[in-house]
Amino acid sequence: MNTDKEPSSALFKNGALWMLIAGFCFACMGALVKLGSEHFSTAELVFYRSFISLVIITVTMRLNGHSFKTHYLKNHLTRSISGTISLMLSFYAVAKLPLATATTLTYTSSIFLAILTFFVAKRRPSRHLFLSIGIGFLGVVVLLQPTIGNNHVGPFIIGLLSGFLAAIAYLNVKELGKLGEPSWRVVFYFTLTASFGAFLLMLTDKFHSVTGVGGLELIGIGASATIAQLALTKAYRQGQSLVVASLAYSTVVFSVIFSAILWNNSINWLSYLGILLIICSGVISVIASSGK
């Protein structure tokens, strides 16, 4: 019996719901990272986020009898290295840029993915999917209203590079899905690579002790990141890449809601317009993918 086989469901077949789950969990992780930044450095947050996720996925795989062995190590390494560098660059951008600007740059990955899909994967997406991505990104800009100063050019370029590498990672996730690699194995190799890379980065920074509250925040970051990565991987495995990419903007909507609840950040009419544009982007992508 093949214990690595993943069940499929018509409800999740286009990846839409998996991406919404991922978006919610990534927003939870982002809120916890913001809280955790009061107790830990960026390097430490990257390491704990990856290592706790690695422990969770490893234990889960062992308990369910899933195999760590793969015939596609090169593909995993390409996905893991590009994803790890993207993660580190995005954390750097968040540290150096206004949060709204850094978050917007993160979601340029959808635009880069559309370009890579056309030139690398040799597939011509429909006009509706391109429209969906454009509307979604416009919604992010309207919602977050990013700004950039003269001293932010370097971090800005690094943020863009993070989005580009994330798009490469997503293409590799899709390819691994076509090869039949299960989601948990994809996430395992990614978190293993990210933990090692982040550990080396952490050695160059100051180490902070883990307190009770800080420990709970780290566990929450690792757990939400694990669920988000699994859902993200399933979404790209089972759905069209550009549909999933457009629905990734849902993370921004959830993040704004969390900001309003946890930090009393106001939501003005521009914010509501941005949210509406993001929702329209998701609806267009789902309708386009279903052929309706």
Rank of each mutant, 00 (worst) to 15 (best):
V253R: 00
C25K: 01
I56Q: 00
G220N: 04
I52H: 01
Y92R: 11
S80H: 02
I257W: 02
V120S: 02
I284R: 00
A225M: 15
F47M: 15
F207L: 13
T104P: 12
A167K: 04
A288Y: 05
L17S: 10
F188D: 09
E38W: 00
R185H: 04
F188S: 04
T3M: 11
Q145E: 06
V46F: 03
S259F: 00
R185K: 14
S241V: 11
G36Q: 08
G154A: 08
A166F: 07
S109Q: 14
Q240L: 12
S132H: 10
I21M: 11
A95R: 03
T193P: 01
K34N: 09
S110W: 08
L160R: 00
L144I: 10
G177A: 14
V253M: 04
I267N: 03
V283A: 07
F119G: 01
R237G: 07
L32K: 02
A169V: 06
G220E: 02
A22M: 12
F188N: 06
S86Q: 07
F199H: 08
L262N: 04
L63A: 13
T101K: 03
T147W: 02
L97E: 00
L144P: 02
W18M: 13
L144T: 04
L179H: 13
L89S: 12
H208S: 11
G222P: 08
A231G: 05
H39C: 09
G23M: 13
A22Q: 06
L20Y: 03
G154S: 03
E6W: 00
K174W: 00
S8H: 11
S255Q: 04
A27N: 13
A93I: 07
I257D: 03
W263A: 10
S41M: 09
F196T: 10
I168L: 10
A166T: 13
C280A: 12
L73V: 03
D205F: 01
E175W: 01
V213C: 01
I111S: 00
G65I: 14
T3D: 05
A114F: 11
V140S: 09
A169C: 12
